[in-house]
Write a protein that binds this DNA or RNA. Structure first.
Length: 488
RNA sequence: GGAGAGGUGGCUGAGUGGUCGAAAGCGGUGGAUUGCUAAUCCAUUGUACGUCUAAUUGACGUACCGAGGGUUCGAAUCCCUCCCUCUCCGCCA
């Protein structure tokens, strides 16, 4: 939330900054400044009445103690005046209405872009900051999008997820699930090593919490809401993590506070119909490791840069090409004053896709959530600066790995940094979940043999590759050949 | 879900209608003192908003004792509604 004092004292400045986000005069401050004047007048008036009312209350107490007749004229006169004030005060209901209106307006206003944020109308005017890594351009025509790779390996299942939930849900199976877990552990370990303290926060969160970071009231249609309770499914761990410190006054020495968290994230993706309908890119539920910082205002720009480095460090460790862009004023999120997006290379579409978004929110969220700090020896309190960034979106990382590490034979190499986490170097077809189609894609396996494998599996699951010998027609030679492509 | 108890300042914990923003203790801060660790003594000790002042770590005012209403000249104290916490029982991973 913006500072009403700043709006009062510097309306032109605030207006100009808001206009950088949208030139259409979408944000109009005059209603706000008018109401503010009215409110202050009403407050002063009430203040004076209350002062007199308190005085009367004390006087009556004193007089009665001092021996005055409680039913005497003197007391009666004071009571009468007290009653008069009460009537006047009850007529000041206006004040509450104005205050509410001001709050409503204030909560709708986005953060002011920082000085350094490039001015632009839309996504198209975002500024590329840097690139890293060689874009993977595969030879031949075997390039597949990640959903095909995943389905062929039997590690991604979209159809069944849709059956269980609805569209825009995915399931991970076998090694796919293990890979997701490995990625989460890997990312958490890296961020913990970078100084972030891990938290497992609630993922059902209340309305105040969502208001504190700016998702509400404006973007209610973006979150899932529980019908019977004042609880919502968290759209990102930024929300519970930042709100951890809501309505607290921290000691300056406690800053900076670094937290990371793995949580599932839930987004309704309203208005994105027809976009990214396939694959892991845009789902209603996805996993993410998030970083959040609460910092001293003076350090927030450098803390922001460091957080960006923490995000890109993951991609570098996984050897995934990426680029960093800085969002222009027209594309900046509601709560952010400055934001970098990290985009990973997806060879199947030949584009970079957002995999992390690192925002400096300044004191905008701290003001909403009332997160302050106090410096020793100084009077008063200040608002902290809050920052958040993905470190990283796990599903999109999985997609990037499948696509960037795919090999001509349909298998997928495991990035070196992940191999110890996953316990394997290559993603292969899983014998126990493979479909006939997947099996026939293996070298030396025809339709009939695939049928026999499935028939054998019907009786008993394969606990090791050696079990394939039970399948009629598979000898040691074929088994050796297949062992590079299959797992159990 | 049923039954009971309770929500007071950084913490513990008094306070059941009147100079209560709130005793006391602890903690914190400043100072004094003692030839060490430590102890003792004195002072001070929340947040927000507003008015005044050139300005302040200044003066004054107002609000805040879970939240919101009500009664009253006056409420932390009485009444109503809601929220939350704790204990016991039930259910449950």
């Amino acid at each position: 939330m913006l500072d009403i004092k700043q709006i009062r004292e510097n309306p032109e400045f605030v207006q100009e900054r808001l206009n950088r986000r949208s030139s259409e005069g979408e944000y109009n401050l005059t209603a706000l400044t008018d109401l503010d004047k009215q409110l202050r007048q009403a407050e002063t008036e009430r203040n004076q009445l209350q002062a007199r009312s308190n005085e009367i209350g004390k006087l009556i107490g004193q007089k009665i103690k001092g021996g005055s007749d409680p039913k005497g004229e003197e007391i009666a006169a004071l009571k009468a005046e007290g009653n008069e004030i009460k009537t006047k005060l009850s007529n000041l209901d206006e004040e509450k209405r104005i205050k509410l209106e001001i709050d409503t307006l204030l909560l709708q206003l986005p953060n002011l872009p920082s000085d350094s944020t490039p001015v632009g109308k839309s996504e198209a005017e975002n500024v590329e900051v840097r690139r890293w890594g060689d874009e993977y351009i595969p030879q031949g025509k075997n390039l597949k999008p990640h959903w095909e790779i995943g389905e062929a390996l039997g590690i991604l299942d979209f159809k069944r997820a849709v059956k269980v939930a609805q569209s825009r849900f995915a399931s991970l199976i076998g090694v796919g699930a293990a890979l997701e877990r490995a990625l989460i552990s890997f990312m958490l370990d890296k961020q913990i090593a970078a100084g972030y303290v891990e938290v497992i926060p609630p993922v059902l969160i209340n309305t105040d919490t969502l208001t504190g970071t700016g998702q509400l009231p404006k973007f209610a249609e973006e979150s899932f809401k529980c019908a019977e309770d004042d609880l919502w499914l968290t759209p990102t761990a930024e929300v519970p993590l930042t709100n951890f410190y809501r309505a607290e006054i921290l000691e300056a020495e406690a800053l900076p506070i670094y937290h990371c968290a793995y949580t599932p994230c839930f987004r309704r993706e309203a208005g994105s119909y027809g976009k990214d309908t396939r694959g892991l890119i845009r789902l209603h539920q996805f996993n993410k490791v998030e970083m959040v910082k609460l910092v001293h205002p003076e350090t927030s720009p450098e803390e922001h840069e460091k957080m960006l480095d923490n995000a890109t460090a993951i991609l570098e460790a996984l050897q995934l090409p990426y680029r960093v862009i800085e969002l222009c004023t027209g594309d900046l999120g509601f709560s952010a004053k400055k934001c970098y997006d990290v985009e990973v290379w997806l060879p199947s579409s030949g584009t970079y896709r957002e995999i992390s978004s690192c925002s400096n929110c300044g004191d905008f969220q701290a003001r909403r959530a009332d997160i302050r700090f106090k410096e020793k020896g100084q009077k008063g309190t200040q608002f902290v600066h809050t920052l958040n960034g993905s470190g990283l979106a796990v599903g999109r990382t999985m997609a990037a790995i499948l696509e960037n590490y795919q090999q001509a034979d349909g298998t997928v190499k495991v990035p070196e940094a992940l191999q110890s986490y996953l316990g394997r170097e290559v993603l292969l077809v899983n014998l126990n979940t493979a479909t006939e189609k997947m099996l026939t894609s293996l070298p030396g396996v025809g339709r009939k043999l695939a049928e026999r494998i499935i028939a054998t599996r019907h009786n008993q699951i394969f606990s090791s590759i050696e079990d394939l010998k039970r399948v009629p027609g598979i000898g040691q030679q074929l088994l050796n050949k297949l062992s590079g492509y299959i797992i159990c």
